[in-house]
């Protein structure tokens, strides 16, 4: 594995140093992967949670708040993942994603619309040439309990239907029983059938439980070719938390410094308010910094968050709190 030589010069001491020449190490055996994961530092849960909690007390006001709200809007993967989803529902979501506030052209569009594979084609059609991406969950989302063959077919169909981004789930059962080679192989296999589509790897951190597991799973995903690592499906009892996001951000930072490859982070599940979103942006800002403060490398998987961001944005402009009915309920 390439390491970065130590040099301490004032300017380059700041921020995350991403070498241009380094490469992602090739994983050739499960033993090698195991050794690599074993070399990762552990996470002390108390310290990680204290750090996240302290950053959550940052007070973001005025122009910073407005900038953060705009940034957050542009990072939203507007999501609907219900059994009751219909083409109509997806259509209105796509419309919302393209123009979150139809009266104000300065409001950025959302990053993507996130749907089940069978609705990808419909979303693609509605979004047409819009810069809003179509993201699709796949690989037997959310449990991932299907054969690799079925999972790959799921991905292949979504890509064929026009998905720009695939949100796959890892096999938590395999991970928790120590079959990390299988977890890795699945990610690599999905990566291959994704083709040009970006791959987001959902760790389902609520089922991995420990931060050490989150860090190791993050590395497996990154080594396997993930463009993003994503906290949760939104379907488990515990979804994204500040401290989990912190540990994943530390993982992408370390990975970028060691390999030169920048992997994004997507937090999903339970993120409903502007306050929540800004807390995540502060975490990004103070853990990994400017490169990641972009929809290319940070996303929110959410549905109701967008309206709260729009309300808070309008409040910043108007100086008074606004009604929820100012915005469409999509």
């Amino acid at each position: 594995m390439t390491t970065v030589p130590l040099r301490i010069v004032r300017e380059t001491d700041r921020g995350v140093r991403i070498p241009l020449a380094a490469t992602v190490p090739t994983v050739e055996s499960e033993a090698q992967l195991r050794a690599l994961l074993a070399s990762l530092s552990g996470v002390d849960a108390v310290g990680a949670e204290a750090r996240a909690a302290r950053l959550a007390t940052r007070s973001i006001k005025k122009s910073t708040k407005l900038a953060a709200i705009n940034l957050a809007i542009s990072m939203v993967d507007l999501t609907t993942l219900e059994g009751a989803d219909t083409p109509g529902r997806v259509s209105s979501l796509c419309t919302k994603a393209m123009r979150p506030d139809p009266r104000d052209a300065s409001v950025p569009h959302a990053a993507a619309v996130c749907v089940y594979p069978d609705l990808v084609a419909h979303a693609r059609a509605v979004l047409a040439d819009s810069p809003v991406k179509v993201a699709s969950v796949a690989t037997a989302f959310p449990s991932g309990r299907a054969s690799l063959h079925v999972k790959l077919l799921d991905v292949t169909e979504a890509v064929a239907a026009g998905a720009d981004e695939i949100d796959m789930v890892i096999d938590r059962g395999a991970f928790l029983s120590g079959r990390i080679g299988q977890v890795f192989d699945e990610i690599v296999a999905v990566r291959e059938v994704c083709g040009a589509a970006h791959l987001k790897v959902i760790l389902e951190t609520g089922e991995l439980v420990t931060y050490d597991n989150v860090r190791r799973a993050s590395w497996i995903a990154m080594l396997g070719g993930a463009d993003f690592i994503k906290t949760s499906t939104g379907k488990a009892a515990v979804s994204a938390t500040g401290s989990t996001a912190l540990v994943m951000l530390e993982a992408v930072r370390d990975f970028a410094e060691q390999t030169g490859r920048v992997v994004g982070v997507k937090v999903a599940g339970g993120i409903r308010t502007t306050k929540d979103a800004i807390r995540y942006l502060v975490l990004v800002n103070e853990t990994v910094g400017a490169t990641w403060l972009s929809p290319d490398y940070f996303r929110f998987g959410a549905s109701s968050l967008l309206n709260d961001l729009l309300m808070q944005r309008l409040k910043q402009h108007r100086g008074a709190y606004v009604r929820p009915d100012e915005f469409s309920g999509d």
């Binding site: 300017e11 380059t12 700041r14 921020g15 995350v16 140093r17 991403i18 070498p19 241009l20 940052r58 007070s59 973001i60 006001k61 005025k62 122009s63 910073t64 708040k65 900038a67 953060a68 970028a256 030169g260 942006l281 502060v282 800002n285 103070e286 990994v288 910094g289 400017a290 490169t291 990641w292 403060l293």
Partner: peptide, 14 residues
Amino acid sequence: LANSELGFLEYDPA
């Protein structure tokens, strides 16, 4: 600069 500056979000005084 292949260097991700921390503090892109400069916080307004609070």
